[in-house]
Design a protein around this nucleic acid. Sequence first.
DNA 1: TTCAACTGACTGACCGGTCAGTTATATGAA
DNA 2: TTCATATAACTGACCGGTCAGTCAGTTGAA
Lengths: 207, 207
Amino acid sequence: MNMSLEGKTRRQALTEFREAEILAAARKVFGEHGFAASTIEMIAAAAGVAKGTLYLYYSSKDEIFWNALSSRFREMIACGKQEVDRAEGTEAKIRASLRVRFEFFRSDEAFMRMYLTEFGQFCGPGGLHRLPVRELYTESAAYLAQVLAEGMQKGELRPGDPLETAMALMELTKAVFAMRFSGLAGQNPEFDGERFVFNLFWNGVKA
Amino acid sequence: MNMSLEGKTRRQALTEFREAEILAAARKVFGEHGFAASTIEMIAAAAGVAKGTLYLYYSSKDEIFWNALSSRFREMIACGKQEVDRAEGTEAKIRASLRVRFEFFRSDEAFMRMYLTEFGQFCGPGGLHRLPVRELYTESAAYLAQVLAEGMQKGELRPGDPLETAMALMELTKAVFAMRFSGLAGQNPEFDGERFVFNLFWNGVKA
DNA sequence: TTCAACTGACTGACCGGTCAGTTATATGAA
DNA sequence: TTCATATAACTGACCGGTCAGTCAGTTGAA
């Protein structure tokens, strides 16, 4: 974080730093225990502040959750769009999109765990409709769907519903991380999740 | 339910019926609101009994949850195993396994919603490790993994980790239902989820 | 001295689980 | 069949613990 941009006082910079600290703590706690089992006090403790301080920055548990998840998620979407634009050709664009997602998840375990444990929940039929999680999810699928639609148009990909296919790829990625982190599968250190997902998505299982 | 089997009094039959009623109500409520947001009183109301009555049949909210989910899930596993055994050849076995899953989800929306909203959650890193959900999940993947392993052996399928691949298929199935029911995609009535999942899994997206 | 930042004891709502009391059903003697 | 008794099934007010959110008081930088 650049803490000395012109136009920002030391105070403002400290405030932003504190906000980022709180959100990082929130991701850690929410990722470890899930939304319901996480308490405001756990988050405050993880951030090294008192309970009341959180309410100087955010007005509710929901808002902390939403900011913790969406801020990082939006970074991931932006980065994904950029890399996809940079890549040439359908296959390379799909690989780029996968690479960004794997890198974000690998480099920020708290974020990944939070996404794994809570995102599906919130998007699903019983999800917290009070939060615009669905829009975020849709947005992250949309640019990938665009790539797939063009690939289908050109005849490089089998015809099908691009949005549905894009979401399937995202869910496949999620599944691989979920298996790894829940200890259900993918424990072999030689197992390359990114390669596995791409191969399955691109070629299927048939020999 | 056969309520007049020899050896069962009217009482016993009614008791079993009541138990089933409670579990069905539990699936409905848990599926609609998720575990944390569902209260014992909501379930009691849905079952048409008082709060205390639930505790005559089950000893805790956890136990109700576990019975509601696992009883139906085990039926699905048993049915899947049977159909897979009956089918001949790798492709037919995979199709059979998919068909059973789709049929169970389609025929019992409450169960499907409960599975969608809560299963991943419980298996995941932040999951309720106090419940043996993971074992159930592993078991449901294992027989499919067996089929895939044999297919790989025979050279009909690309080589790979069978368990990982089996779980990927299960997650793909889940994803399709989740999209449909969350209204995010797959809304076109002509969209055939079962066909979509099989094609993607079998052939991949590449033309 | 000023005041923004921070604190943590406190409040009120909520909910899982209990249990003393009520109702429904079965039994069997008259 | 009728009534008395026993017991199983059920009820819902209540209890204790938890936790999101508040606010009067404290701290420390400028």
